[in-house]
Amino acid sequence: MTISLPIDAEANELLQRSPLALLIGMILDQQVPLEKAFSAPYELVRRLGHEPDAAELAAFDPAALTAIFAERPALHRFPKAMAARVQEAARLLVDRYDGDAARVWAEAPDGRAALTRIAELPGFGRQKAQIFLALLGKRFGVDPPGWREAAGEYGAADAYRSVADITDQESLLKVREHKQRTKAAAKAAKG
């Protein structure tokens, strides 16, 4: 299993091997294109000159981390808020999981527990937690019993709803089409 997003090969490789980078990408995946969100962990590594661990990010001077996020081009549309959220997540990882992001899901006895643990992370509501669980299950082989059910509609094998379903350009287009239909339906329901 592999992740293959429409981003630089080096950024995909980092996401593939680093649970922390993958988690940061998912944290940043809001109000920016997914390409920007999931490229940001690699750009953060480039800016720091090394791959940080959770303990380093947790202990970082908040103003300095914000400055790194805000350096042009900014890592996110809201660099101050997202630097703070990444730091808050790193602190939670250090406090609860000895800094090991993979322990959030790897130690969960079932899909529902994995979803609960993911949803406790800063910036993760239920939907985002379901998408991340589906990403872990579909692209990384993280498959505790009941993970598809816990991931809801995002866990379906033949779905094209989220980043969890992107394997190539064709699947990316299907995911984008689904999102456009969902937004149009929500707008029509309001109107």
Rank of each mutant, 00 (worst) to 15 (best):
T2S: 15
L5N: 05
L5P: 10
P6G: 08
A9M: 03
N12R: 06
N12L: 06
L14Q: 05
L14I: 03
L15G: 11
Q16S: 10
S18M: 02
A21W: 00
L23I: 01
I24W: 04
L28N: 08
Q31E: 09
V32G: 03
F38P: 03
S39R: 12
P41R: 09
Y42N: 13
V45P: 05
V45T: 14
R46K: 15
L48V: 08
D53T: 00
A55H: 01
P62A: 10
A64S: 15
A64Y: 14
T66V: 08
F69W: 11
E71G: 06
R72I: 09
P73E: 11
H76W: 10
R77Y: 02
K80A: 14
M82Y: 13
M82E: 15
A83V: 05
R85Y: 01
E88I: 00
A89P: 05
A89Q: 08
L93H: 07
D95P: 00
Y97I: 00
D100W: 01
D100S: 01
A102L: 10
A108D: 10
A113R: 11
A114K: 07
L115M: 07
A119Y: 04
L121I: 12
L121A: 09
P122R: 11
P122E: 10
F124G: 11
Q127E: 15
A129P: 03
